[in-house]
């Protein structure tokens, strides 16, 4: 039993972190550089494809690197820290769904040549026997060929054309492009229910890992600021009112990171406990991202309320990912109905 990354796993983390530090620094999201709307991350996909990141956990016979949920979760923590477009989640989940039966589509996704957006319900979804109807939000779908739909009990890969009435909306998270759209008896290319295998649990785990990264980055930003910002002749981090807020952020991030690690090992073994542990990790990690995002703004004071620092980006991204496949209220409803795992 060991819940720390192996040397090889740490090398993957370092590689991804190094790549993102060079190619996707948080400053890219400053409004004066890239404009307020839209994200600059489409250019990342081909580079990430080259490094094998988009097919990291896809089996080798499906054209991926054949690594496990543990390595996937570790890389998603890095994606969250760098606020990489959540389109990456579409690519990873879409590649998994396509790899078994549609190798050409999987290859195009993993090569970064076909983008995959996300669909998440705006209300009730009818999804009997793999035919889906309902109203949805599409995220990062504007240039996507495919869409991954995540509901509380199913995950499905569609061609984007299956969605009707696509109309753009501004998003609270200004760097993410958002649409409304509908499915009327939409037929997916591939899908699986929460009861079949770990596809659905993988989605929750990777959302949790991403949220953990958001929580960690919000913490790091707040702590850095509290060390240098002075009031009353002292760094504000010396005051318990600020210090204890930072400590609470550190606790939340540690809770999330530990449970994400644990769940990732459970998923890597295709265990029956995958759904339980992935839900648990999603609940604590999204909670950490929401709380740390909000607290980070408060620690920064007035500058935290501006677009001149990154603090506001974390809470907005946390809200966005909270809703992918159902928010905390939905996830907790699912989780309290789940059988105990002792």
């Amino acid at each position: 039993m060991n819940l720390l990354p192996t040397e090889e796993q740490q090398q993957i983390v370092d590689m991804v972190r190094g790549f993102l530090a060079a190619s996707a620094p948080l400053e890219r999201l400053r409004p004066d550089k890239f404009g307020q709307i839209g994200n600059p991350d489409a250019a990342l996909w081909p580079k990430m494809a080259e490094l094998g990141i988009l097919g990291l956990g896809v089996p080798e016979e499906g054209g991926g690197l054949g690594l496990s949920a543990v390595e996937e979760a570790l890389t998603y923590i890095e994606f969250g820290r760098a606020l990489v477009s959540v389109g990456v989640l579409g690519a990873t989940l879409g590649a998994h769904l396509a790899a078994r039966t549609m190798p050409d589509i999987a290859a195009a996704i993993m090569a970064g040549t076909s983008a995959v957006g996300l669909a998440t319900p705006r209300g009730a979804v009818a999804g009997d026997d793999g035919i889906f109807s309902g109203e949805f939000h599409l995220i990062e779908a504007n240039e996507a060929d495919f869409i991954v739909l995540l509901t509380s009990d199913a995950i499905a890969l569609f061609r984007r054309e299956e969605f009707t009435g696509q109309s753009e909306r501004l998003s609270m998270d200004s760097h993410m492009r958002l649409m409304r759209a509908a499915l009327e008896s939409g037929k997916p290319l591939s899908w699986s229910s929460v009861k079949d295998g770990i596809d659905h649990a993988r989605a929750n785990l990777l959302i949790a890992a991403y949220a953990t990264g958001v929580a960690e980055a919000a913490l790091a930003g707040a702590v850095d600021y509290a060390k240098v910002r002075e009031q009353f002749g002292k760094p504000i981090g010396s005051f318990q009112a600020i210090k204890h807020k930072c400590a609470d952020m550190a606790i939340a991030a540690e809770v999330a990171s530990c449970q994400v690690s644990f769940a990732s090992v459970i998923l890597s073994k295709n265990s029956d406990e995958s759904r339980f542990h992935a839900l648990a990790s999603r609940i604590v990690a999204v909670d950490a991202a929401l709380k740390n995002g909000a607290t980070g703004i408060q620690v920064h004071g007035a500058i935290g309320f501006t677009a001149e620092v990154e603090a506001h980006l974390f809470v907005k991204r946390a809200h966005l990912i909270d809703f992918i496949g159902g928010d905390q209220r939905v996830q907790k409803g699912q989780f309290i109905g789940a059988d105990a795992v002792i």
Partner: peptide
């Protein structure tokens, strides 16, 4: 039910924290 789900997730995470502490303590 909502609060219990939160507590259930958190106590599950405590087990994971315990495992990580044990993993670190081996070093």
């Amino acid at each position: 039910g909502q609060r219990l789900a939160q507590l259930r997730a958190e106590v599950t995470a405590v087990r994971a924290m315990t495992y990580r502490i044990a993993s670190r303590a081996a070093i």
